[in-house]
Design a protein around this nucleic acid. Sequence first.
DNA 1: GATGAATGAGTATTCATTCAT
DNA 2: TATGAATGAATACTCATTCAT
Lengths: 196, 196, 196, 196
Amino acid sequence: MFDAEKQDKKSMLLNAAAAVFSRDGYYKAKVEDIAKHAGVGKGTIYEYFTSKKALFQEMVRGSLEEYEILIRQEVDSVKGWDKKLGKLIEANIKFAANYRDLAKIVSSDPGSIGEASKKWLINERISMIKFIEDIILCGIEDSTFREVDPNITAIAFLGALGSVVGKLLFDDDPFQQSEVKQKLMDIFIGGIGKRY
Amino acid sequence: MFDAEKQDKKSMLLNAAAAVFSRDGYYKAKVEDIAKHAGVGKGTIYEYFTSKKALFQEMVRGSLEEYEILIRQEVDSVKGWDKKLGKLIEANIKFAANYRDLAKIVSSDPGSIGEASKKWLINERISMIKFIEDIILCGIEDSTFREVDPNITAIAFLGALGSVVGKLLFDDDPFQQSEVKQKLMDIFIGGIGKRY
Amino acid sequence: MFDAEKQDKKSMLLNAAAAVFSRDGYYKAKVEDIAKHAGVGKGTIYEYFTSKKALFQEMVRGSLEEYEILIRQEVDSVKGWDKKLGKLIEANIKFAANYRDLAKIVSSDPGSIGEASKKWLINERISMIKFIEDIILCGIEDSTFREVDPNITAIAFLGALGSVVGKLLFDDDPFQQSEVKQKLMDIFIGGIGKRY
Amino acid sequence: MFDAEKQDKKSMLLNAAAAVFSRDGYYKAKVEDIAKHAGVGKGTIYEYFTSKKALFQEMVRGSLEEYEILIRQEVDSVKGWDKKLGKLIEANIKFAANYRDLAKIVSSDPGSIGEASKKWLINERISMIKFIEDIILCGIEDSTFREVDPNITAIAFLGALGSVVGKLLFDDDPFQQSEVKQKLMDIFIGGIGKRY
DNA sequence: GATGAATGAGTATTCATTCAT
DNA sequence: TATGAATGAATACTCATTCAT
């Protein structure tokens, strides 16, 4: 078996795992179900992953890394710090559907998944916060943004973004998507306070 | 046994459940541990709750309702729509520590806890969003706020608030708390965009 | 449940374990079979023993200790070093039937049972060898025996005894038993060499 | 492939099997490990043996037969019935080290290996007992030995021999070996009883 | 012939729940 | 009412064996 084939099979198993884990959650998901979903025998899973936990972690990490890379690419493709924030919203909306499984899983009981994985997840979030912080910082420097606290702003922005994207996923109405982006940008850039 | 005594014991069991569930997560938590924590026998749990799941759900609902009531009380105690938003942040920070266990649990894999509970959780969130929406709506009406989309704003606000409160819980630095409230208000009210 | 009852139940489980382990060997024996044999549910085993291995070890150790104590008591009940050796043979024959299960098990693949248990088994044997060695040593001192090497003699005696008792167990002919004792004593005391 | 080559490969596999089985015991030994040890693929084992059990049995039988043949050759090479017994001890000590693996395995839980193999093992032992019995019988006839029971004596001798050789293997002190032979002969020929 | 990827039967162990006391 | 001993359904994981290449 060529390395390429091996990777393909591994990918396939990871996809099946994503489907079942997101449907059933980590604890209710059965290894045998994942195997069936992938059209292979139970034992085959263990040829590629050492344990259910390892399979889960590899799946989460892989998907999340991929997601982050896509987001960063999109954001890097535009100039202007406010445009970048807009792109961040847009890209999150764009990819969210593909990764809705992941979203459900990431919010799964992290304490039960293992310390290492939990720490990795926290670091991943910190890295995304840093990424947003940098955009805000640069925006402040060239006077695109006011002198807000970059860290708090980044955290608030990420939280708001997640919350809003969750709503879109829930409503499943593609029509609203560009509208929502505009509204969220409006709120964040302009603030909700009335000015005279 | 009088009804009052019965309620007391039930309360006690719910408290023990909260402690153990939040420490171990739903799946890792053992009914026997909860019983020990409460200083009763394993069988006693089943005199007051029909199952582990029922115990869990009753605990989550009770705590969350309590939390919401506290928050609403605090918010209702001030006048001015912007002040209310400020109070909302403040109250969330204030109570978050007591309910940090709850936060961990609510973010636990909801799909695995039962459909009914999941729906209830979603409704609870919707009700909180409505509450915030109303504040914003009223603020728009009396020109405290600009004409932003109340729904999106409420969702974004709640997401940002949760994210920031999570950070405070994580950092565990009580010193920052009032400062954070100011900064978050500043961002939301004033926006991050530079005005000339 | 009183401690006495608990001990009774534990004993019962150990007996069931002895029966099944000796019939099937450590690896082929199934915990569920042991439970059925004892007339209890599978889970009950785990209320009294932490694992299959622990159950096995406790059973072997308990039985072997008991066996050794019985043997030593019998041997101590007679005077005269040669009489003691005779009694040792007699007692081994006498108790062997009750512990034939144990015999089968003790000869089971010790390496697979765990290091701790293996060492304990070796020490148990060493202690029995010492016991025989002492008898021989005392016999030499008071001129009951010739000046043979006590250690080698003890080891040889124990080996011969085990081998012969095994044969008796196999043949299952109670008639031969006292005869065999006499013959074995004759061989050991008198030697097989012709004297003129 | 010529028959000779086939036999060579089979031999090689049997050697690898002996190494792994004796290191890990029958149950813990993995077919794949044996294959790796032999430098072949897992499937190749099944070209030469029908199952793990068959491989095991063939290995045990082959080794044991070889061992017996060597022992008998050595014993046949000397004259005098007492000398033959001495040679028997000597030869057992001499070959024991090479077959220490085998010793460990033969003492493995025979009940778990299959009825056929168990019977064969018992027969093998009986045949060795017969061999010793004959020596003793002949020795009695020409007045080398006293009129002891040949069967009991043979069984006791074999047991004692095994026990003592086991000790030598354990101590691993080649220096004692000839000494031990002398002592064992002394005990058996002269007996341990003091004569006046 | 030789291989090793794929397989799934087989099993120790956990823990929510019951029920006799 | 309160208890905790007893239970057995449920599940991750192993490894001998097969068979397409």
